[in-house]
Design a protein around this nucleic acid. Structure first.
Length: 424
RNA sequence: GGGCAAGUAGCCAAGUGGCCAACGGCAACAGACUGUAAAUCUGUCCUCUUCGGAGUUCGGUGGUUCGAAUCCAUCCUUGCCCA
């Protein structure tokens, strides 16, 4: 199976330029994807472009990761309804470093001629003068062409308008492709389907300015069946950086996927073969309650991103927190409590417990809730458990009888948010 | 520079002198049902609260009024049109 066929059954191809498949089977091809340095870590949304590069490398081609230092300073209008804030050079440089470190985990940067490579478009744009740009780049593309782009049209017809800076974005990005074509012999660009317009501007520029031929394909944007935003949880973005999103939370994110989503995602986010996926789906359909599909999905991705060891830790924590829902909290050892990851820990003065404190004040003062009113409302709604027992009465006194091992209290806010309060 | 329109909670969006902490929708959080899903139903959703209330909001500032998101002035921002 060649690269395109492979990606196609995985549902990773949205648009593809004619001739791309032939080019890929003809010779070792360099292909690139652009990454946006607006944050210092990549989140799981960027996992898709990363996977495109990984697949490319596996298929015997050379991946380039372009960090949009220059374009990040401008802001892409695609899919945005509003003008973006501009970032300073310093922040962009810092973010670029973070991204680089993460990419190194997924791509092989040291395997001969197919080694992955990282480039930053700031490097060729910082020297570029305005005159140079409008003469050598702008000259080749008509405004009519640029205006016809969906991303531009929407903004012009909408009621927010669009600055010249953003309008120029597609040219700047298109020039990236041209530059890589000329200087690195890069003939392929990949990206999310929202990038299609910008990518085509690039191939157009290559055709007109260099008389060359370049190729491209895009991957559909990842969506959720319920229309929600992919990659967001209660706590915000799901990041690839374990400092920002712990491996446990990362694992949980995938484990919580809906059936419909998981079925799509397992093809996109894992390297399982077509027959393996078919087997898993069949097994899942037989007994959906087992959630074999989600478990496998979560396992594959967590191992891929964080490694086997972290995955196993996440599993252990998961089992402790969820598998024996009915087991009394007293059965957990001190080690279990201390080592559970994904549990937010806080300290609390022991005297307050010994003298007894009402549940509402306790929840507010430990920071589990931001205010007493908030805590009270959730308790009234049945949303708080202490040591795995639902708090039925908001007048409950918290005292030493609730301490596990003489010093811990395990608090649950909802079903999935655990807090461990340690008295000192 | 001139003309017109608009700015309301995280977002969309009603409200055009008191009944307004402000209809409705989305998002979010919690509960029930489940499979730590989805769908559905219920509750919460400006801040604090001793759950009785209290305090701060409707682009900013000043004003009119017993009383303003609502009227007036002025400034700021955005869009459209003209120069």
């Amino acid at each position: 199976m060649n690269l395109i066929e492979e990606l196609r059954w995985r549902g990773m191809i949205q648009d593809i330029m004619p001739g791309t498949e032939e080019q890929l089977s003809k010779e070792m091809t360099k292909g690139y994807v652009g990454f946006d340095p607006t944050a210092d870590s990549l989140h799981i949304g960027s996992l898709v472009p990363i996977l495109l590069l990984v697949h490319l490398q596996k298929a015997g081609h050379k991946p380039l990761a372009l960090v949009g230092g220059a374009t990040g300073m401008v802001g892409d209008p695609s899919g945005k309804s509003e003008e973006r804030n501009l970032l300073s050079e310093e922040i962009l440089r810092f973010n670029q470093e973070g991204i680089r470190k993460q990419l190194e985990k997924f791509l092989d940067f040291n395997c001969g001629e197919r080694s992955a490579e990282m480039v930053n478009n700031y490097d060729w744009f910082k020297e570029m003068t305005f005159l140079h740009f409008i003469r050598d780049v702008g000259k080749h593309i008509t405004v009519n062409y640029m205006m016809a782009k969906d991303s531009v049209k929407k903004r012009i017809e909408g009621d927010t308008g669009m600055s010249f800076t953003e309008f120029t974005y597609q040219l700047v990005q298109g020039y990236d492709f041209y530059w890589l074509y000329e200087n690195k012999k890069c003939k392929l660009q990949m990206g999310g389907s929202d990038q299609w317009g910008n990518i085509v501007t690039g191939t157009e520029l290559i055709r007109r300015k260099a008389g060359g031929e370049a190729f491209a394909f895009t991957c559909p944007l990842i969506t959720k069946a319920d229309g929600g935003k992919f990659g967001k949880t209660e706590k915000g973005n799901v990041w690839l950086d374990p400092q920002k999103t712990s491996p446990y939370q990362f694992y949980q994110f995938w484990l919580n996927a809906g059936d419909e989503d998981a079925e799509k995602w397992i093809k996109i986010f894992t390297f399982l073969s077509q027959s393996e996926v078919a087997d898993i789906l069949a097994a899942h359909k037989k007994d959906a309650g087992q959630r074999l599909l989600q478990k496998r999905l979560a396992r594959e991705i967590t191992v891929f991103v964080h490694g086997r060891e972290e995955y196993e830790k996440a599993i252990v924590t998961t089992q402790k927190l969820f598998s024996n829902q009915d087991a009394p909290a007293e059965s957990l050892s001190i080690e279990d409590l201390e080592e559970m990851e994904g549990v937010i820990k806080s300290d609390f003065a022991k005297e307050r417990i010994l003298t007894g404190i009402d549940i509402v004040s306790f929840l507010a003062e430990t920071g589990i809730f931001s205010s007493k009113g908030d805590a009270r409302k959730t308790v009234q709604g049945g949303g708080v458990s202490i040591n795995r027992k639902k708090v039925e009465n908001e007048k409950l006194k918290v005292d030493s009888s609730l301490l596990l091992h003489g010093q811990y209290i395990l608090v649950q806010k909802g079903k999935k948010n655990y807090f461990l309060v340690k008295t000192i």
